[in-house]
Simulated scan of single mutants.
Amino acid sequence: MSKCPFCQVDQSRVVLQSASAIAMRDEFPLTEGHTLIIPRPHVKSLYDLSAEDQLAAWDLVSDVRKNCKQELGIHAFNIGINDGAEAGQTIEHAHIHVIPRRIGDVVDPRGGIRNIIPARARYWEVD
């Protein structure tokens, strides 16, 4: 079994941390500032964590979002979880994506995360 990349994090990549979770920039960012919030306990799903650890992870999401707004001038975000292989999770350690969004980074951002299934994303065009 290979080592979990989120259990062996290079501390130089950590941008924020708490007793329960760390925040680090994504190694393959979708946009500048793309950050992962990673709970310290090794669990596959965020929902395998205690309620206290879940809350601590979401508190760190809030801190990362605030920092991106202040440091990068960002005003919009996609924040989400890939929970399970069918949902696109590739690393079996729970984590939350904070993805800063900017004007013009895609032609039409409407639908946001709904675009994971493109044929169903444009609900505003349905008769």
Rank of each mutant, 00 (worst) to 15 (best):
M1F: 14
M1D: 14
S2N: 14
C4F: 07
C4T: 10
P5W: 09
Q8S: 14
D10E: 14
Q11T: 13
R13Q: 12
R13K: 13
V14R: 07
V15K: 00
V15W: 01
V15I: 13
V15T: 10
Q17G: 10
S18A: 07
A19N: 10
A19M: 05
A21N: 03
A21Q: 02
A23K: 01
A23L: 04
M24H: 06
D26I: 05
P29L: 07
P29F: 02
L30W: 00
L30Q: 07
E32Y: 02
E32R: 03
G33C: 04
L36G: 01
L36Y: 01
I37L: 05
P41Q: 02
H42D: 07
H42K: 10
V43H: 02
K44E: 15
K44R: 13
S45G: 04
S45W: 05
S45K: 08
L49K: 04
L49W: 09
L49C: 05
S50R: 10
A51N: 09
A51P: 03
E52D: 12
E52G: 08
D53T: 07
L60F: 05
S62D: 13
D63Y: 00
D63Q: 14
R65K: 15
R65F: 00
K66P: 03
K66D: 14
K66S: 13
N67T: 11
N67F: 00
K69A: 15
K69T: 11
K69Q: 14
K69V: 09
K69L: 04
Q70N: 12
Q70W: 00
Q70R: 14
E71Y: 08
E71F: 06
E71R: 12
E71G: 07
L72C: 11
G73S: 13
G73W: 00
H75R: 11
H75M: 11
H75A: 12
F77R: 00
N78L: 08
N78Y: 03
I79N: 03
I79M: 10
G80P: 04
G80R: 08
I81N: 07
N82F: 07
N82R: 14
N82W: 08
D83P: 06
D83G: 05
A85Y: 12
A85V: 15
E86A: 14
G88T: 07
Q89V: 08
T90R: 12
I91Q: 12
E92N: 11
H93K: 10
H93R: 09
H93W: 03
A94G: 11
H95I: 08
H95E: 06
H97A: 11
V98T: 05
I99Q: 00
I99C: 02
I99N: 00
P100K: 03
R101K: 13
R101T: 03
R101S: 08
R101M: 08
R102G: 01
R102C: 06
R102T: 07
I103A: 04
G104A: 13
D105H: 06
D108C: 09
D108V: 09
P109Q: 02
R110C: 02
R110Y: 05
R110V: 03
G112C: 06
G112Q: 04
G112H: 02
G112K: 01
I113A: 08
I113V: 14
R114L: 15
N115R: 15
I116W: 12
I116E: 10
I117Q: 12
I117M: 13
I117H: 11
P118D: 10
R122I: 00
V126P: 03
D127N: 15
D127G: 13
D127E: 15
D127V: 14
